[in-house]
Design a binder for these strands. Structure first.
Lengths: 154, 154
DNA sequence: TCTATAAAAGATAAAAAGGTCTTATATTCT
DNA sequence: AGAATATAAGACCTTTTTATCTTTTATAGA
């Protein structure tokens, strides 16, 4: 029922790329890492995997960096999670039971299940671009930085 | 937003004790570990901590073991979680944002929040005994064992 | 009082997750 | 061609979580 830190970083990064990058405007790990406040060597590793998984794209050399191709933009958040954590993790029982379903529900199954469906739906049915658009329309925050440091003068 | 495996084991064990133990009927780690299918040395360590935290009780020696005293029975699931994981863990943002609230919500904040309140309410407002009673009334499963192995002949 | 039993305590180990560093490779620009 | 830049790849390190093992202590009962 939880995302690894790696998945969280990946989701935030992908949304950041959706908003700020394009085929003609690639962004380096370093810039992204600083923008969302994540350790950059770790993010670099993650990005390699995302590129192999065709979630994001990259080119090397000067003016190189990471970006979303047209195809990448049509991926969904669930594709990111699948690529990093696999799908099993999100489907684990909240109390750790090896088999927990409508037939053999754990004590909180019927609270957890509707929530799970809701959030999986959200992650599955929107493309990364749509998701990013919704976020910027609603003015949501997308960094791990301390928000106070962003809004205050310093 | 997740429980450690330790917390999960602890919750299942406490509920098991609520149902099967009493001041006059104590149960050994080994029996409990086998019943809920959890590694027994690990559970033993966990139990030490739960005893120190006054969540469960124990006596040494022959006919000794673990049980819930009258006071223990009035603890709630949230007390177990607090004792093992602390409360911070359950309150973490689903996407890992350091500050995520109604003012500065992450993209899934308004999906996660109602669920969190619901499950926290459930864990806070019922005593362990009440919780255990509800579970046995509804015939819910409480072991990590493969359910098939329980119901099938073998 | 001796023995068996069961938890307490503490040391240690194994695995997973998170994070870093170094070298190689591709690309662009001069 | 050569220098600079940015990712790719792989080795490596650290911390946290999970799990185990050994020794000690308390208790009951013969």
């Amino acid at each position: 029922m939880t995302l690894s830190r790696a998945s969280k970083y990946a989701i935030l990064s992908a949304l950041f790329l959706a908003e700020h990058s394009s085929e003609t405007k690639k962004i380096s790990v370093k810039v992204i890492a600083e923008s969302i406040d994540v350790p950059s060597p770790f993010l670099a590793k993650l990005f390699q995997q995302l590129v192999r998984g065709k979630i994001i794209s990259s080119t090397k050399g000067p003016n190189g960096g990471f970006y979303l191709s047209k195809k990448n933009q049509k991926k969904s958040v669930i594709d990111i999670i699948e690529n990093i954590d696999g799908l099993g993790r999100l489907n684990e029982c909240f109390l750790g039971l090896s088999k927990c379903d409508g037939e053999n529900p754990c004590p909180v199954h019927f609270i957890v299940e509707p929530f799970k469906q809701q959030i999986l739906g959200k992650f599955r049915d929107k493309t990364i671009i749509e998701f990013a658009e919704e976020i910027s329309a609603k003015g949501r925050v997308l960094t791990l930085k301390d928000v106070d440091n962003l809004t205050s003068g310093k």
